[in-house]
Design a binder for these strands. Structure first.
Lengths: 307, 307
DNA sequence: AAAATTAGTTGACAAAAGCAACTAATTTTA
DNA sequence: TAAAATTAGTTGCTTTTGTCAACTAATTTT
């Protein structure tokens, strides 16, 4: 039994209790959860047939038929014979039905608000973001491209987090030791010392307010720019984040009239190399080195921007 | 209507459907969800009274009584008259009951595994982390003291993460600019340059594999040691983590025979100051400075270890 | 054009849950 | 310390919720 699974089970039990949907009367109304779900489904689709409801909510048609009969008697819904199929009816909410649903929505919202009232704005954001992550991972089984945001102003914590990502990711993927992280710390210190808002920039891709990818442009003498710290959390690869970051970086170089962009990398970073080549970088130097407990080639790639 | 609330409602609907708990027969067993929850509750608490179950699961006692009667007939539970209260019975699972539950657990786990099989290791980590975040935010932010772990070996990513924490926390609490983070980066680089495993050490407190607090001892000339980078995520204060970290650090100094430990701090860090004093540190210097967009006193505290 | 399928209804019934009255033990109160 | 109130658990009775199968009438397939 994997611990992941048992942790998910634990969350499921927690959330079942949290949802509080196992009591008969939903939100102290005279309706059961099933009945509310039916009303909600009708409301969502504006107009729907009984058949469709049984499919969506997985209900017995006889059971549903009787519930709809009661709804009709109570004037919550309107049934209109379907023009295309004389066996079927189109069902929609009546004004009364809409009213009831809106009252229940308010109740439900109040209940939720009661549960989150102690959270501050950023905690609420984190909550919603985390819920979205859970949902995306459990449905599409992947992270939605729209959930990634991009920015390039450095705020406190950013550089530390990027250093952390370098240490953690290179440590995990290539078994680099902590010495590599120390080297990254040094390069960032130098960068910040010489930082010029006009000629330098860091781009960050974020998911749930956490940095998951980055790249930077560092100005160099003679109209040259260096592309550095290109990194992507493995869980977020294949979403076009890398391409977007590199494109932004190169566009910035063009805008700032750099004549040439270069980058130093190693032969190990195969995924990144592919992207560099795709963007137009060409290998210009290669040298064998031994460092951070590894043997590899240190390579230089260049991208000429002016003819 | 706040969007936060409606987003949470949307997640709730999604998760209700995802949990698949609204069908009568739970996991294709002959038992209903309620019955399984009862069995689970008995299993969790090892031994429990019917009264307690009604409280936890919010069930009618008559209804529960009958279910337990059936469980007894089916040999799933064992009822023993309570010694303290002759009205009550202590209920526990029989071997058969444990067996049934373990079969259902396996089924449930298989189902979950089916849903996450397409996720890679880090996506699974993200899923579990997000679930933990949701849970923590929805449950009063109660962090259990036992959930905090301590360690002091530096692994890749640690230093970067600690820098990040400094930037983010001081940025949020004292509105320090990114210049402060740059300063922290410098101090860490110097530390790593002179690092000696015998005379230096960093302690980290972790929650969910994330660093939430730290402190370090840096050796200095003449048998002195400097205590640095004492920091605690605000969400984790008041749990005794700070005291534990400082005690560990001072104990290390004693063990390594340092004659004196000192630390440099500012008058702003009132929470930390209190802890320093509690451990035995005494104010020895104070100087007014202007830095990182603030005016404050830079103070030195000392703790003599040998008479 | 006959056969099979489908949308919806209805009767019969079973399972799930709630309510109230009851017993016996325990705790509170006066 | 004895009477009153409360509590743990059981049982009878009822409602609510959900299932199954047979049925009608319309539609689709063969």
């Amino acid at each position: 039994m994997s611990t992941t699974t048992s942790k998910i089970r634990s969350f499921n039990r927690f959330y079942t209790a949290h949802l509080d949907i196992l009591s008969q009367h939903y939100l102290d109304s005279e309706y059961s959860l099933t009945e509310i779900r039916i009303l909600y489904e009708i409301s969502e689709s504006k107009i729907i047939t009984a058949q469709k409801i049984t499919e969506i909510l997985n209900l017995d048609k006889g059971y549903l038929s009787r519930i709809l009969k009661r709804f009709l008697k109570e004037n919550l819904i309107v049934k209109v014979a379907s023009a295309e199929d004389k066996r079927a009816f189109n069902i929609k909410l009546s004004d009364t039905g809409n009213e009831l649903l809106s009252i229940l929505n308010t109740k439900s919202e109040n209940k939720i608000e009661g549960k989150i009232e102690k959270l501050n704005t950023s905690e609420k954001e984190i909550l919603v973001d985390s819920m979205n992550t859970v949902r995306n991972l459990l449905t599409e089984n992947k992270i939605a491209r729209e959930d990634i945001t991009y920015r390039h102003e450095i705020t406190p914590g950013d550089v530390g987090y990027i250093i952390y990502l370098h240490g953690a990711i290179y440590g995990k993927e290539y078994h680099f030791s902590s010495d590599f992280e120390k080297y990254v710390i040094k390069t960032f210190y130098d960068f910040l010392e010489k930082y010029s808002p006009e000629k330098d920039r860091i781009w960050m891709a974020e998911h749930n307010n956490k940095i998951v990818g980055c790249v930077a442009i560092v100005h160099q003498p003679d109209g040259e720019a260096q592309l550095r710290w290109f990194l992507l959390d493995p869980a977020f690869r294949g979403l076009g984040i890398g391409k977007r970051l590199l494109t932004d970086a190169v566009d910035f170089c063009k805008e700032k009239n750099f004549k040439n962009v270069f980058l130093l990398t190693t032969s190990m970073q195969d995924k990144a190399l592919q992207m560099y080549k795709m963007i137009g970088f060409k290998l210009t130097q290669s040298e064998k080195v031994e460092e951070w407990g590894k043997t590899f080639y240190e390579e230089r790639y260049d991208l000429k921007l002016s003819k």
